[in-house]
Amino acid sequence: MNNEELLSTLQGKLGQFAVEIVPRNPKRIYIDVPPEHSIAANRICFEELQGRLTTATGRDTPHRIEVLYHYCLDSCGVVVTLRTWAEKPECTLDSLAAVLPGANFIEREIQDLLGVKFRNHPDPRRLILADNWPQGVYPLRRDFSARRKRNETPEFLRELTQEVTSP
């Protein structure tokens, strides 16, 4: 499949959901998909285009948290990125792991680090953070700082900072 064919296929299959299809260069295509259609679009990428879910990236922006699902289309060597988002402050999104087991770990990681809640996730336990990490503190959010909010940091971090700052 060459690049124009791929773009027209993507337009045909995902055009009904997508806000925008942006080919940054011939090998990298970014598609914005509103959250309500994200599962349907992901299924098309995995089942119809035979893409392989490489991973997902969570990104904190001022008003929403973006989740980027990266698919490798191995037959033509193109990476298709589906960008969806969870509006603050609720930060909820439908879970892909219920459909595709390969998304299980990465969604749990995003849930831990950025606080996106995935609806219908089959196994929403913690994956990355320690068991004694406080609820509601998300270390990859841009407003997180272990130093500034000293009262809200976990016990072990507080002990560490005191040791360093005490004369």
Partner: peptide
């Protein structure tokens, strides 16, 4: 933002 996915993760 920087994201790393190592092979063992999948």
């Amino acid at each position: 933002r920087y994201k790393v996915r190592a092979p063992t993760y999948v």
